[in-house]
Design a binder for these strands. Structure first.
Lengths: 277, 277
DNA sequence: TTGCTCCTCACGTCACGTGAGGTGGC
DNA sequence: TTGCTCCTCACGTCACGTGAGGTGGC
């Protein structure tokens, strides 16, 4: 029989761990002195301890280990637990590897720009939305081509909505679909509305959900949006994604003073190497 | 200005998170109503929030993020933090990948044996030790060749130690060195002693530390040790290691009844692919 | 008597999730 | 008046590390 100190030394664990394993019923000392509370372990219990350490080493939690030790699990069940653990570990490895490549991308951008740019890109899911919208065609993607089209569209959308007494379900947004034939762009001004909403002069449609979009908050006038779009494009490229879907703008704050505007830019993406959407 | 609920929705985070970030001073609401305690956020603060989320996404802790945001760190320092993060992530990936391969090895062994074997192998470091020892030559590695050599050696070692009044610093152990020329084995019986110890008929030597050893607790008579050695050998092979050093046995519990013996088997190993020790 | 080993609480860790219990404006 | 949003505690998470404060045998 070993005292807890000797047993811990032979088992290469801390005394605290042995007390903890005792407390949760994972490894009970062979003998506990009723008077002093001193714990005593048999040499053979080193085998039990090693079983615990081996399972912990595979990444199982102590509770699961307890189940494995006590309940004499069948081989099939053990195999199932190991396979689950395997897939969890594979997921963890993939997640950390992705993190790692994002850190690398950050370092590369830092080389180029020699400073933290003011804006940060985040990947997010975009939910589907039922919207009321107005559409028009612009000659191209340049701000001076888009602006004169989207602005009046938004104004009209707002007025029509008020006339139809529809309560909007969120801020106004725009999305852009390039023509397949020429350089023109189909511009949409849209706003979330309840499913039952109806109104003269408005088109109602479903904006599809997007699993992954690069998202960036743009501050100030839309005249300066190109810099933000460029930041986002380089982030997408540097992090192993590519654009896959219509670009959107969400108008979080608008008003008289355009320098106070806040817009969220949203670009649907998919990982490079994945099949077409 | 947004209420905390709207701001949370737009930022795709929980209300609880915003309160938490406020509590630790990471993201303070632009305005807090003194009467009600209601928090209000400016649209522009979504940029700050996204910065936090982007850094968290790289795996930084909230305290580090606070430092990064508040203290206007220089580019060199930021680069340093990113490089540190990169190496931490690389280590995490390697650790989880190793875990994953151990789980795979377990699954393969399960296929073969269709049950959990009673014994578990653990990898551990062996510390260096100053020992008193006696040595002799055995004809080979078979238990019936080793036994008649190691047993009397251990007996004599014990008696000499008692005669020399040396207090042992741990349990007795054996280690085995195969001859380079023939099938014989140099057998050592050793026991840790204080550095200053001396005694007639005893050799004193330094057992080297071992960075990694496969360790397994063998129960019962040494006649049955081959099964345990075999388990260990297959574990070493299945987990991407190879043997690299003299095999050791640590006698944790000995006595009249050999079925009660407990021995720890120790085999120094190195990962396959690593250079020679 | 002095060290040594052992004991039992109990707090801290990290980033929140999840109630409990209560309050202000439409 | 009823929902809705918001508020402040406070516990739980996971596997221990780290004191604090105290006790039994050589």
């Amino acid at each position: 029989m070993f005292g807890i100190g000797d047993f811990a030394r032979h088992g290469r664990v801390s005394v605290r761990m042995l007390r903890h394993y005792d407390a949760i019923g994972l490894l009970t000392p062979a003998l506990v002195d009723p008077a002093s509370g001193y714990r005593h372990y048999r040499a053979a219990q080193l085998g039990e301890l090693n079983r615990i350490l081996a399972l912990r080493d595979l990444g199982f939690g102590l509770e699961q280990i307890g189940t494995l030790l006590r309940e004499r699990v069948e081989v099939a069940e053990l195999r199932g637990m190991l396979r689950l653990r395997r897939s969890e570990l594979a997921a963890a490895v993939a997640a950390d590897a992705a993190r790692l490549s994002r850190v690398d991308a950050r370092l590369r951008i830092l080389e180029q720009e020699d400073a933290m740019s003011g804006q940060d890109v985040v990947v997010a899911a975009l939910p589907a939305a039922h919207v009321a919208e107005l559409s028009a065609v612009a000659a191209g993607f340049a701000p001076e081509e888009i602006g004169p089209v989207i602005r009046p569209l938004c104004g009209r959308l707002g007025r029509l909505l008020a006339e139809s007494r529809i309560q909007p379900g969120g801020p106004m947004l725009a999305y852009y679909e390039p023509s397949a034939e020429d350089d023109t762009v189909l511009v949409h001004a849209a706003i979330p509305v309840p499913a039952a909403a109806a109104g003269d002069g408005l088109a109602f449609t479903e904006l599809p959900a997007v699993a992954q979009a690069a998202v960036l908050v743009h501050h100030g006038s839309m005249d300066g949006v190109l810099a933000s779009v460029d930041t986002m494009a380089r982030w997408i490229d540097g992090n192993g994604y590519r654009m896959a879907g219509a670009f959107r703008e969400l108008y979080l704050q608008v008003g008289e003073d355009e320098s106070e505007w806040v817009t969220e830019l949203q670009q649907p993406i998919i990982p490079v190497g994945a099949g077409r959407q």
